[in-house]
Design a protein around this nucleic acid. Sequence first.
DNA 1: CAATCGTTACTAATTTATTAGTTTGACAAG
DNA 2: CTTGTCAAACTAATAAATTAGTAACGATTG
Lengths: 131, 131
Amino acid sequence: MRKRRAANLLTEVELEFMTALWALGRGSVRDILDRLPEGRALAYTSGATVMRILDDKGFVESTKEGNVLVYEPVLAKDEYQKRSLENLSKTLFDDTPANLVVRLVDDGGLSDEELEEIRAILNRRLGDHDR
Amino acid sequence: MRKRRAANLLTEVELEFMTALWALGRGSVRDILDRLPEGRALAYTSGATVMRILDDKGFVESTKEGNVLVYEPVLAKDEYQKRSLENLSKTLFDDTPANLVVRLVDDGGLSDEELEEIRAILNRRLGDHDR
DNA sequence: CAATCGTTACTAATTTATTAGTTTGACAAG
DNA sequence: CTTGTCAAACTAATAAATTAGTAACGATTG
């Protein structure tokens, strides 16, 4: 028996595949390969290997349907986003997510609309009725 | 001549070392190893290798001082934070940083104080009239 | 039934990352 | 001057990630 490698974060290629799978909901190796970005040429067998690894690591689960393995995420995209943010916050922002937002806001990559949107979210969250 | 490996993002170990170097401002291999977190035992030569690689990749530069190489960052921590956020946003949040903040805020890992702090930053940035 | 097609399982090759050993050279202590 | 120490440069060993080839197998069809 193989199984159980366990890892916290996805590698680059794994993330590519998970992104396709999250978009699909569920799918076979073929489905997933088809969903990969344009130029991405990869042998079928390579794709199958990546999916097996993701299965080993517990990021997906597979069920045999007819003669095809259909994969689906065990870890939701939301969850993984959260995990990634925690990691980034921990490794690069003193474990203080607010610092991360400061950098984001200060660095001017966001439009006023986006900033407003974020403020709206905060207002909703904080229930700030004084306005 | 070696040099020029070029890479966009730091590996895990490289980030550890850069974090120490950013905190120090500048320092030798010895200085940096001393600044690594408690349990982190690593041979001196391993540390020297990591620093050489960071030099090769252009993340740091070195100057011989006496008989010791003193390293300092070429890439500021701010810049690298920005780069990391861009990467995360691109790979996991549809290239829309606001989504990233939404996840952060929605997932309840932040205290009210932190949320307030972030809102204050936004208000400052947007010019908080109306309140 | 035999050939073939699509798929999984297994194995392997290559590359990159991580850690550390060996060699060499500078220089300070005796 | 010889010896010991320290650091740098080079080399090497191990591990992990990435890509793909080969074998094997079941289903379909000519």
